[in-house]
Structures are given as structure tokens and as C-alpha cells.
């Protein structure tokens, strides 16, 4: 285990009120003709969380809730519109400018078919970060390291000579993980790493990721839409809805006592494999457009507990026992 794990009070990553807005206006000419104003998509709109070293924070939510945007914000693929991200206590833009700091963060992506350059051999794909950061110079040493990494993720060093199309989805995801590990990172952002995989392969990848975390003391930001998957890997979980966190709680606490009505609705919506015969009551309606979100609490049109206050006043995250919840009903004890 690394010294980093569990040492000191500085979290691996700290996000303070981060936001990212996208300009989705039509081109100027069309806008003038149609007399429309600018339109802004608030993909992420004021999120605060921290991830202590050696732990996993998961963000869950339905498509369009902004979870993948958060993943890209914290590794600097997008710039923030507002707020700050601290990487190991240092401002992210400074950390990104320093190659040693940059090598400490890596990302794993969702689509195993798009995340590997189809024209490159696996050995070059995995070695890319090693070469980019100049970690090893000698060709032989690089080859040996790639072989070691491939073995670590359950592939053979001989696989290095092949091209990505010769591998199945699960194997490609292993290659992605090997590439991410090759710069000896401490912080991994995983954007839906298993949602494109079959369930038996998903189990392989989840097991591998847990094993690597224990062995290498990694810190994960895990993005997923699947609550059952999230439960298996997380220390803490944040539930997102329309660009905001609605609940942030330790994993067990979230599943034992979901507080926010949306969290409860999500859990209610998952088909029951155990077939205990319980009648599910699916939440009605659909996720509104993030371009013109409803006023007040954005969940109020679908919320069974909504009242007049919810329709006008935006709820903020407030502590509720060991969790943080943004809900007027919970705060007032109506939940």
C-alpha cells in the first residue's frame, strides 16, 4: 500500500461549488431570424464534494443529470464555469500544468470500442502514458513494464502485439485499465466503466477494480447509473438530478435509509430479481430538460412530497444525520 492512502487530512480531490454551463444557442444568424435569445445548458450547477484518499465516491443518476460532465471537469477535460477543484490540495489548473501531478490522475471510459485507438498496437496504447511522461526511456524497460501491466489486469504480455479489434469488450476494458495504471496514478476517474459490458464480464471488471484499489491504494471517482453496481464499489455515494447533488451519504446509509424522494424513486425503479412479490410503484413523469429546468426544486413536478415551497425555493444541501440532503420535505420532517 502507498503512503498516500489514509494519510493526513488533505482529500485526494475536493470540489467546491463547481458548475459547468454549455452554450447551446443556435448560430447567430438563425437566432436573429427566429428572435431567440442565447440558451444555456446547465450540465453541472453547483456541486460540492470531497474524496478522501484511498476511498471511492460514486455519482449516480439518470442520463442527462451531469454525472459524466463532473468526471470530465475533475480531470480538466472541461474547464469549470464556476467553483474550484482542488487536487491533493492544489488548484486543478496548476496541477494539470505540472506533469508529475498530471501523471497522478487517470481516467477509464465507458465505451471499450471507442476508448482505444484502432490503429495502434496494444503495447503502444498501454505505453503511451509511460512515453508521454517520460517515466521510462529504454525500449526494453517499457516493454517489460507493459507486460507487467497486462499481467496485472489479467491479460498476457503477448497480447501487446495485437490490435484492439482482436479483443472482446471486457478484454478491451482491461487494456484501458492497464493504460490508466501505466503512469502509476493515485486517482482514477471511472466513467461508467462497466455499463457497456455483459453482466458476467461486468463482474470480472468490478472485481479487478476492487482488487487494484486494495493493492495500489487507489482513490476512485466512480460514475454509474446502476445503483446495484455502485453499492458494490462505493464508500460514499452522491445522487445527482439535473446537474445538482440531491443526496450525499455513506454507501450503507444511503441504501438502508434513502432520504431524498428521488433516491427512493430510483431504488423503487430497479426490477426486483429476488421476486419477493412486492408491488413497485414507479415514479411518474420524465427528467425535464436541463435547458429550462423547473423553478424551485427541480424534482418537484415528479415528487410525491412536493408542496408550495418546493415549487419556488431551491433547496440546498443540509446535513441529515450522517448524510447531506437537499430537500425541503426532509428538512421539515415531512418525508
Amino acid at each position: 500500500m502507498r503512503a498516500a492512502a489514509g494519510s493526513g487530512a488533505t482529500p485526494m480531490l475536493e470540489a467546491q461549488d463547481i458548475a459547468r454551463h454549455f452554450d447551446v444557442s443556435k448560430p447567430v444568424l438563425q437566432r436573429l431570424i427566429a428572435r431567440e435569445g442565447r440558451r444555456t445548458l446547465r450540465a453541472v450547477d453547483g456541486l460540492s464534494f470531497d474524496i478522501p484518499k484511498g476511498t471511492t465516491l460514486s455519482l449516480v443518476g439518470e442520463s442527462g443529470c451531469g454525472k459524466s460532465t463532473v468526471a470530465r471537469l475533475v480531470v480538466g477535460l472541461y474547464g469549470t464555469t464556476r467553483g474550484t477543484v482542488l487536487f491533493d490540495g492544489q488548484d486543478l489548473s496548476q496541477a494539470r500544468a505540472d506533469s508529475t501531478q498530471r501523471s497522478r490522475m487517470q481516467m477509464i471510459f465507458q465505451d471499450p470500442y471507442a476508448s482505444l485507438n484502432p490503429r495502434w498496437r496494444v503495447v503502444d496504447i498501454v505505453a503511451e502514458p509511460i512515453r508521454a511522461f517520460g517515466l521510462l526511456k529504454d525500449r526494453k524497460a517499457i516493454l517489460a513494464r507493459v507486460g507487467e501491466l497486462l499481467t496485472q489486469v489479467g491479460l498476457s504480455p503477448l497480447d501487446g502485439q495485437k490490435y484492439p479489434h482482436e479483443f472482446s469488450g471486457g478484454q478491451r476494458q482491461r487494456i484501458s485499465i492497464a493504460r490508466a495504471l501505466s503512469s502509476n496514478p493515485e486517482f482514477l476517474v471511472c466513467d461508467e466503466p462497466t455499463s457497456a459490458l455483459d453482466v458476467s464480464v461486468q463482474a470480472q471488471i468490478l472485481n479487478l477494480m476492487k482488487e487494484l484499489q486494495q493493492r495500489l491504494g487507489l482513490t476512485y471517482l466512480f460514475i454509474s447509473h446502476n445503483l446495484a453496481v455502485v453499492r458494490q464499489v462505493s464508500d460514499r455515494i452522491g445522487v445527482m438530478y439535473l446537474g445538482k447533488l440531491v443526496e450525499l451519504a455513506p454507501a450503507e446509509s444511503l441504501f438502508e435509509r434513502p432520504r431524498h424522494p428521488y433516491t427512493r424513486a430510483l431504488m423503487e425503479a430497479i426490477p426486483d430479481l429476488e421476486m419477493t412479490g412486492r408491488q413497485r410503484i414507479p415514479v411518474g413523469g420524465e427528467v425535464p430538460s436541463p435547458i429550462s429546468p423547473p423553478p424551485g426544486c427541480t424534482f418537484h413536478p415528479r415528487c410525491p412530497l412536493a408542496n408550495a415551497r418546493c415549487r419556488v425555493e431551491v433547496p440546498v444541501m443540509k446535513p441529515a444525520l450522517d448524510a447531506m440532503v437537499a430537500c425541503h420535505a426532509v428538512e421539515e420532517g415531512r418525508g
Binding site: 472482446s168 470480472q204 468490478l206 453499492r231 450503507e252 441504501f255 430497479i270
Partner: peptide
């Protein structure tokens, strides 16, 4: 290999290899 929703398991059952 289906992750259960109602509990956390340390290691999921996995089928090695691929179809």
C-alpha cells in the same frame, strides 16, 4: 454475477473468459 442491490459482497461471482 448480477450485483445485488440489497447487500454489498466483497467479491462478485464471475465467469472467467468471454463467450
Amino acid at each position: 454475477s448480477i450485483p445485488p442491490l440489497d447487500r454489498r459482497v466483497e467479491r462478485l461471482t464471475q465467469i472467467d473468459g468471454a463467450m
